[in-house]
């Protein structure tokens, strides 16, 4: 089976681990991706902060190319790209004047027919039903599923899951044997696009997420966005300095966790590319939160 894919720039570079796990997982389920030909960057935060027409035209070119190429479903693993593409499609479909203007800017017709899917929707549609017979090693750990902002907001446009307490990732994680925890930072922002220009803000916000997950007893944070991953994983040194702590909880992509459960190796899902080492102990039992680790120590307070 062939489905459209828009990898986006991160998956080509700093989120190579995510890319590898997406492809390895697809292969394990006999899915072939066809990339949107000659795709460009979606413009991300920079474009919509700086120029409205640009922020619509860059994603519109991608979607127009997908349409031209006959790709009905396009999987967008990066939550930030997913949001930009979905918001653009929504805005252009609801404003014919703007749609004509953008079509003129990109020099291509835009119809707005693409089914834009985030990675959880991809898993739900193409993988979940086939999971049962394929699980060879349960992912039996306590996990905190972290959705961040762009997977669920703006909810009016994305119309995907509950905006305050989403469950879609939790459901998938339970299916592969995990104990997904209730926690407080599921949809809080990690600091996103300020990673390079205001690193201290990212350390502050991402640190709160990591702290809550840790003291609720999670053994891993599960993510589905390369920006969340790079802020929680690659920025861990900055975070630990800022919070004067040594948080060691690993940050794992949803696709990596499913991959492991269906028998892919740690290498195949890209663990060696993480900054925070993934040392998940072998376990036979069902995951239960150890009450002892649940208490948050008094001395750890916000900096």
């Amino acid at each position: 089976m062939k489905i459209g894919l828009y990898p986006g720039c991160s998956l080509n570079g700093s989120a190579r681990d995510y890319n590898e796990s997406v492809f390895a997982l697809a292969k394990a389920f006999d899915i072939e991706f066809e990339q949107v030909p000659d795709w460009n960057c979606c413009g991300a935060t920079a474009a919509h902060n700086m120029n409205k027409e640009l922020s619509l035209s860059l994603p519109a070119r991608i979607l127009a190319l997908a349409e031209k190429h006959g790709l009905a479903d396009v999987v967008v693993p990066c939550a930030a790209c997913y949001s930009r593409l979905a918001v653009t499609q929504h805005e252009l479909l609801h404003d014919p004047v703007l749609r004509n203007r953008v079509s003129e800017i990109i020099g291509m017709e835009f119809k707005g027919t693409t089914n834009i899917m985030n990675v959880i929707q991809f898993v739900d549609k193409f993988i979940v039903d086939k999971l049962e017979g394929k699980i060879t090693k349960k992912f039996n750990y306590n996990v905190a599923c972290y959705y961040g902002c762009l997977m669920v907001r703006p909810a009016k446009i994305l119309k995907y899951d509950r905006p305050e307490d989403p469950q879609s990732m939790d459901v998938v994680m339970r299916k592969i044997g995990a104990n997904s925890l209730d926690w407080g930072y599921k949809v809080e922002c990690c600091g996103a696009g300020l990673s390079v220009s205001k690193t201290d803000m990212v350390s502050k916000l991402s640190g709160k997420i990591i702290e809550d997950a840790t003291y609720r007893g999670a053994e891993a944070i599960i993510v589905a966005c390369p920006m969340c991953h790079s802020n929680l994983d690659m920025r861990r040194g900055d975070i630990n300095n800022y919070w004067k702590n040594k948080f060691t909880i690993p940050v794992i992509y949803l696709t990596q966790a499913i991959g492991l459960a269906v028998g892919l190796t740690e290498k195949e899902v890209g663990f060696k590319r993480h900054f925070v080492a993934v040392n998940l102990p072998e376990k036979k039992d069902e995951p239960v939160v150890d009450k002892k680790v649940k208490e948050k120590p008094k001395e750890v307070t916000s900096a």
């Binding site: 720039c9 570079g13 700093s14 460009n40 960057c41 413009g43 991300a44 474009a47 220009s197």
Partner: peptide, 20 residues
Amino acid sequence: IVSFHKSFLDSIKYTGRLFE
């Protein structure tokens, strides 16, 4: 922050993709 956004957009303008 503005410098970062400008650098980001320049990268797209000259290559089509973000060159990290």
